[in-house]
């Protein structure tokens, strides 16, 4: 059994009288320590899948197994606990708490986790050793995203979920961030999922899942992932 399994996952949204199928019978597997890139046009259900996987949303039907745990059966506090201990999120717009310094933003996450990493070390790892006492507004976009990644990995999660992490960043910075994520996956042995609409970055992944119309249409396994530095778009 794979580390993560999506089995016939359906997700329906009701918008008034219309029912939208965001996910319909989605199936895919991810192994532990893989770097997975999910690509697809907008509205294909990438984010929905990620949200369900991250415990931010629940599936209408189907099974989502993470490390042997069926996430779909989790309710309320258990779901939060799952998010808290197993998942790290990175968003397009960083979602840092503006009122906290870089280090404090990381601490915000670490103080609620049992096996958290040392915020200083994590920040050092993401290359923000000298800027840890700055407020988000004093940091560049890339730096902010790095803080967000630091915050996510400081929790020492099983799964790092990134939703368009480079969407708001310029090419160079974006590349740096992807590098960081790749390193995190490789060195930290953390399973990383990256959502992107930019197919160009797909080669960096171990596995590429193509989404279309609420389905994982195609799953490609990349035996030789390309280092980020070598990818151009």
């Amino acid at each position: 059994m794979s580390y993560i399994e999506f089995e016939n996952v359906n997700k329906q949204y009701k918008m008034g009288e219309i029912t939208i199928d965001a996910l319909s019978k989605t199936n895919f597997q991810i192994e532990k320590g893989e770097l997975v890139v999910i690509v697809g046009p907008s509205g294909a259900g990438k984010t929905t899948a990620l949200n369900i996987l991250g415990g931010m949303d629940t599936a209408t039907s189907g099974k989502v197994i993470v490390d042997g745990k069926d996430v779909t059966t989790l309710k309320g506090k258990e779901l939060i606990k799952y998010r808290r201990e197993d998942i790290g999120f990175v968003f397009q717009f960083y979602n840092l708490v503006q009122n906290l310094t870089a280090k404090e933003n990381v601490e915000l996450a670490t103080q609620i986790c049992k096996d958290s990493l040392d915020p200083d070390k994590v920040l050092e790892k993401v290359g923000l050793k000298d800027r840890k006492n700055n407020f988000p507004s004093q940091l560049s976009g890339g730096e902010q995203q790095r803080v967000a990644i630091a915050r996510a990995i400081a929790k020492n999660p099983k799964l790092l979920l990134c939703d368009e992490p480079t969407g708001a960043l310029d090419y160079k910075t974006g590349k740096q961030i992807l590098k960081l994520l790749q390193n995190t996956c490789r060195k930290g042995n953390i399973t990383v999922l990256i959502i992107t609409h930019n197919t160009a970055i797909a080669p960096m992944a171990d596995k590429i899942i193509y989404f279309k119309n609420g389905k994982a249409e195609k799953i490609e396994i990349n035996q030789n992932p390309t280092p980020v530095e070598e990818i151009e778009w």
């Binding site: 991250g54 931010m56 506090k77 939060i80 606990k81 799952y82 998010r83 808290r84 201990e85 998942i87 999120f89 979602n95 840092l96 708490v97 503006q98 009122n99 915000l108 996450a109 609620i112 986790c113 915050r151 929790k155």
Partner: peptide
């Protein structure tokens, strides 16, 4: 709301 949503995502319990 964004800040609160963020900390919820981070896994803060309702009480927290």
């Amino acid at each position: 709301i964004r800040e609160l949503a963020t900390i919820k995502v981070l896994g803060f319990y309702d009480k927290e």
